[in-house]
Design a protein around this nucleic acid. Structure first.
Lengths: 154, 154
DNA sequence: TGTGAAAGAGTGACTTG
DNA sequence: CAAGTCACTCTTTCACA
């Protein structure tokens, strides 16, 4: 699907504030509100915009402990398998297959160290996991939602 | 600040759909629309809800290459220093100080390998960086926005 | 917190370049 | 075909009980 410069700007504005009105966006991109709505509808329908979400301070909700866990998997493990398995754990906020020694990298978020340990144990219980290597997050310095500065086109 | 069970449910609903109407949320939590608005306003004012954003398919915007980079830093480098420095790079979508060998873990997103390489070079140019170790993301399996399933309280 | 009223936003049908 | 206009409905958001 083709997205033009106006779409880009609309996306950037929605990433900055998902509750902005179509009229507001319209004035910023020189379009009428219905025109903006049609574009947003199209972007949602084609999957460019996956949805709208609230950005919550994890500490405020009590999920304050984070870790990155490298997963070493059994010989014939597919990415899809890892995806399905990791998605089952609510503590998993990110999972990626990666190059290098490990097969996958899993981003965990939990209430505290005890909760994190429990989640890790559960993860290690997955049949295809042969071993893990954890890295505890000491502090979160940057965490952009969305796709980063989507106003830029590289 | 104190957030009760109703706040939790409102947060969960907004994470699921940031554009839900107050009336809609209200029926789900048995409150009137203005009551919901007042709670959301309070949650925003106190920083529990940091904002509302659109979740964009990175591939659709052309940022399709990702990496995790471990940063090894000079002796007296503060987390704040790393935070300020990494925030300068638009490719950085996440940065954390971590336990283990490395001092920090940086999550990069770029258009392609060339762009990623350029970003990495720029990052390595930061005065306090002594060395880096990169892990390329092969596929994204899970990536939850917000705070994960915030309907759960651990 | 709920109610009700005024202002504003979302959305469909229709028209125009 | 995509944008603009208009009309109608639903939301937001205020004051007050």
């Amino acid at each position: 699907m083709q997205i033009d410069a106006v779409d880009q700007r609309i996306i950037a504005l929605l990433v900055a504030d998902a509750r902005a009105s179509y009229a507001d966006i319209g004035t910023r991109v020189s379009l009428s509100a219905p025109a903006v709505k049609r574009r947003v509808d199209r972007l949602r329908a084609t999957g460019v915009i996956r949805g709208f979400t609230a950005v919550v301070d994890p500490a405020a909700v009590g999920w304050t402990t984070e870790a990155f866990v490298e997963l070493f998997c059994a010989g014939r493990t597919t990415p899809a398998q890892i995806g399905v398995a990791t998605r089952r754990h609510p503590e998993v906020v990110g999972a990626y297959t990666v190059s290098g020694e490990a097969d996958a990298l899993v981003h965990l978020r939990a209430a505290d160290i005890a909760h994190l340990e429990a989640a890790l144990e559960r993860l290690r219980g997955e049949s295809f996991v042969t071993s893990t290597r954890s890295t505890i997050v000491l502090s979160r310095l940057v965490e952009s939602p969305g796709v980063g500065p989507s106003s830029r086109t590289p």
